[in-house]
Design a protein around this nucleic acid. Structure first.
Lengths: 205, 205
DNA sequence: TGACTTTTCTAGTGTGTACTAGATTTAATC
DNA sequence: GATTAAATCTAGTACACACTAGAAAAGTCA
């Protein structure tokens, strides 16, 4: 029983790593098997199909991202500014997806590449994750800390999008850290790039 | 000669459409041929390989996006605010990629899914496009309109990323238009979501 | 019409993919 | 050490893919 669990974990790790760096199509059962020194057929002793294996990796990735953000929010003081909550969540997401392990990275990297079945399987997970952000923005607007003239759903998707797309260009070897990217996103979407008084013309959508 | 050109155009259009909606892997030579009522082998009379065909579609997409942004900037008055230039460029990009034709959409949609050869082939095009944005941000910082305490390269990539990721969730049928998305991105990254005076703590990277 | 060119089709090849069946080896248990 | 169970391997199948060769059809122009 022990052996099986360890091998199973090795397969998951190798799959997560491959998904995160090579994407869904380039992640073949054979390449996964080679990474851990097995024959491709042996994978099927542990997982019934490629997509079940990939699905499990993505489940773990989602769970880790949610945990990272939840945990960061839980450490806030009770009387925190809603902007601070947004900042903490953004940085936690950035660190989980950019600086963290392969699992959350696999999630973002393969977004838009998955076959319909897998996409559908994870729709609910993504919705749940989105709700964390919806609440953060709602809190900010209702407390008067954030502007209410923008479409909150669009705002939420723009923030998440800026963070998710970073996986396409972020290089862990460079001098900019994952937390730095998060800080930049926060500074931009909350405080804005502009200096001094700007009119903030109302936008109706 | 006429017939050939028209068929060639049909193939390009069908490929762009498929890339934009289904991605690179799901875009097969056979599916392209079926779309225009041909046999898959006939495609090879017009293009020597799938990747040459895809490459040409992506070239067109890049060119159209560049043209859209350049044209929008050219229509600005000489004494425009650097923030206004950024706004115009952001909205032009949003309209080109979200509301425009299949070609620019194919570009963004397949980003990160392409085989290495194609990725390399378009590296220079992406760099050129990025320089448009680098100049916009530099102008803003140097004129004193935009903050200089953020990493400009990171800021540029965050703006482009927020726009590019929108292709994953934007629905042309909904009440939010492509230009609306652009306006939201501008409002957020330039003016910020925050209301009132914020300290704008310096970030050194 | 007839000769010629251009375009498309039919019928395949080879390769890589996920996946299966059954033999074989490795590990655990009595 | 013998028996059983767990884990892996060998050797395949079936299918989808990009792509090719050569025949057939469609179009062009004297």
């Amino acid at each position: 029983m022990k052996k099986s669990d360890r091998t199973r974990q090795d397969i998951l790790d190798a799959t997560a790593s491959s998904l995160a760096t090579a994407g869904y199509t380039a992640t073949t059962v054979k390449s996964i098997a080679e990474t851990i020194g097995m024959q491709d057929a042996s994978i099927y002793y542990h997982f019934s199909s490629k997509d079940e294996l990939v699905g499990e990796v993505l489940d773990i990735g989602t769970a880790r991202a949610v945990t990272a953000v939840d945990q960061a929010l839980a450490e806030l003081q009770d009387d925190h500014d809603p902007r601070e909550a947004l900042r903490v969540a953004i940085i936690a997401h950035a660190e989980a997806v950019l600086g963290g392990g392969d699992y959350p990275r696999a999630n973002v990297r393969t977004f838009g590449q998955l076959p319909p079945d897998l996409t559908h399987r994870h729709r609910q997970g993504h919705r749940n994750y989105g709700q964390i952000w919806t609440r953060l923005i709602d809190d900010g607007v209702e407390s008067g800390a954030l502007r209410g003239d923008l479409n909150r759903s669009v705002a939420r998707l723009i923030i998440i999008g800026a963070l998710c797309w970073a996986i396409e260009w972020f290089d862990a070897g460079e001098e900019v850290s994952a937390a730095d990217v998060g800080e930049h996103v926060f500074q931009m979407v909350v405080n804005g790039l502009s200096i001094g008084e700007h009119e903030s013309p109302a936008v109706s959508v």
